[in-house]
């Protein structure tokens, strides 16, 4: 069952009509409805093209959160060969909200980790809806250190509403765990490549996105706070989420303009979830190219480049 977003209502109606005609076509062999179906299909595609060419920031948030959008587990299944999932922070627990492991990307041995939101209700609950607890960040830091020890490039996939806000997470040091993950990212001697695939929610996202190269999918978003959270703090209630989304300048296009990301990975027409093969291909090509570019750099240069990249960020807004 395909999930339609509120602004996709005309498309939903077109698809329903197409489905109806298809059934009719099969039943009554006499009448040929192929032409009508083709016309409706063209109309649907035109709608998608026009709508997705000018999504508003809030609509992008909706697409980025689409339940059928590929998640870290999907990317790993599609792109990584011989994947060995690795678990646990060696301290307190295993946190399924961050998926980690080793594998091959087109013969390149890599370490891959990312937020996992889960596909169905059961998985979503198990993954805490992609909101990691301190043990998730400690596991990520452990994995990056491990990758560093064996000169494995690290690929991180970002897709979270944010770090888990809970009493136990606070007591186990959520703040320290995130700070430590940031510090680890900065000190790793191997290449880190990050892709913001869906939602880049605040500190819980950036904790694993301090990379040599940072990419965003065309309809992904990345910001300091969710539009709802921003609205409730600054406007006093969550109803101004659309205005907040515009103000937060959280789209890939905005962030590219500000030089906060390296590049945008194009999505198939109508979003990554509509043609997963295409997005897997685009993501893979981006990763391979980035790996190739970073391969000749020694560990010192890699660390330096990563640090300098973040030192340079926002420097364009410092006056001399």
């Amino acid at each position: 069952m395909r999930h339609f977003l509120d602004f996709e209502k005309p498309l939903y109606e077109l698809e329903a009509r197409i489905e109806e005609l298809r059934n009719l076509n099969e039943q009554e062999g006499g009448v040929n409805l192929a032409d009508d179906i083709l016309k409706l299909r063209e109309k649907a595609n035109r709608f998608l093209e026009e709508t997705y060419a000018q999504l508003s920031p809030w609509q992008k948030v909706q697409v980025a959160r689409h339940p059928q959008r590929p998640h870290t587990s999907d990317y790993i299944a599609a792109l990584v060969d011989g994947f060995v999932p690795l678990a646990g922070d060696r301290n307190y627990a295993e946190d399924p909200a961050i998926l980690c492991g080793l594998g091959y990307l087109d013969h390149h041995p890599v370490c891959i980790l990312g937020h996992e939101k889960g596909k169905d209700t059961e998985q979503r609950v198990a993954c805490n809806f992609g909101m990691p607890k301190p043990e998730g960040y400690r596991k990520a830091a452990r994995m990056m250190t491990l990758a560093g020890r064996f000169q494995l490039p690290i690929l991180t996939l970002v897709d979270t509403a944010g770090a888990d806000p809970g009493v136990q997470s606070e007591e186990r040091g959520q703040a320290e765990a995130i700070a430590n993950a940031i510090e680890t990212c900065l000190n790793v001697p191997t290449p880190i490549i990050s892709i913001i695939c869906g939602e880049g929610g605040s500190g819980g996202a950036i904790a694993i996105a301090i990379a040599n190269k940072i990419f965003m999918l065309e309809h992904a978003v990345y910001s300091v706070i969710s539009p709802e959270g921003c609205s409730s703090i600054l406007w006093g209630n969550a109803s101004k989420h659309k205005t907040a989304a515009e103000n937060l300048k959280m789209t890939a296009q905005d962030l590219k303009k500000m030089n906060l990301i390296d590049d945008i990975i194009p999505e198939p027409l109508g979003g990554a979830h509509r043609k997963k093969k295409t997005i897997y291909h685009n993501v893979k090509q981006t990763l391979l190219q980035a790996l190739e570019e970073l391969a000749p750099l020694d560990s010192e240069t890699l660390q330096q480049q990563r640090t300098q990249k973040f030192i340079d960020q926002t420097r364009q807004f410092v006056k001399n």
Binding site: E183, L186, I210, Y222, V224, I233, L260, T307, F310
Partner: peptide, 22 residues
Amino acid sequence: GARMQESMLSLVQMPRSVIAIN
């Protein structure tokens, strides 16, 4: 915490501050 009105420009101060103390 981070200054909301600077959005991503403020979020990246987290790693920048860590670089500084590192």
